[in-house]
Design a protein around this nucleic acid. Structure first.
Length: 205
DNA sequence: AGTGCGATTGACT
DNA sequence: GTCAATCGCACTA
């Protein structure tokens, strides 16, 4: 079902289109659209930065097995895993493997498209560049919280993934940001030359 | 039962 | 550059 979004028609990504592999999904999601149809209106953004938290990853929340908090990581690919970080920020992941395997892709930054005034209402008068630049800011701008944990992003519902064109340029790769274990692997992906990407400046080019 | 620490951000020196 | 906010969960005992 096509829905008008930012002047373009974007439809939901079907689960069968999602790669059944965490790293492949992290790359696939670059350039796709995240949409939140909230009561106050639609918010959407182009995904420009992701991180893969793979099977057996000591930095991943699923590393020590299934718990009440991380159970959404074990859902079939394409479900939301939302958790609270540092007691105050919400971070959004997309589960990334078959049901029963705990792994996910963290969404770290968006280029805002629809509902920018609404995002500003959530975030304050931040520059457009900073509205959803960083995983905590992304969730705050989009109005995402624990109530979205476990939602199917490929089904009818308020939060979904839109089938936009994909990356316009090259996909860059770097180490992940802010972790203390398994720090060496290049599991962060971002669209090169895009100002909406988070992290230190040298890891944005 | 107590402790320590984040997949972060914003304010401040 | 440093640091506090703030809380669920893993880990120790």
């Amino acid at each position: 079902m096509a829905q008008k979004e930012n002047g373009l028609y974007v439809r939901r990504i079907q689960r069968t289109s999602l790669p059944v592999d965490t790293i492949e999904l992290a790359k696939y999601l670059i350039g796709k659209t995240l949409v939140h149809d909230a009561r106050a209106g639609r918010m959407s953004g182009r995904i420009v930065e992701t991180e893969a938290y793979v099977l057996g990853d000591a930095a991943g929340h699923a590393y020590r097995g299934l718990t009440p908090r991380n159970k959404s990581l074990f859902l079939d690919r394409g479900h939301a895993y939302v958790y609270r970080a540092y007691g105050l920020h919400f971070l959004l992941n997309v589960s990334s493997e078959v049901r029963g395997v705990g792994a996910g892709v963290l969404l770290r930054a968006l280029e805002p498209l629809d509902g920018i005034p609404l995002m500003r209402l959530h975030r304050g008068q931040a520059p457009l560049i900073d509205l959803a630049r960083g995983p905590g800011r992304l969730s705050q701008a989009m109005g995402i919280g624990l109530q979205h944990d476990g939602l199917d992003l490929c089904a009818a519902g308020p939060l979904w993934l839109g089938d936009s064109a994909g990356p316009t340029g090259e996909i860059g790769r770097s180490v992940r940001i802010g972790i203390s274990r398994d720090t060496r692997r290049l599991l962060r992906f971002y669209e090169r030359g895009i100002p909406y990407v988070s992290g230190p400046k040298r890891s944005r080019v």
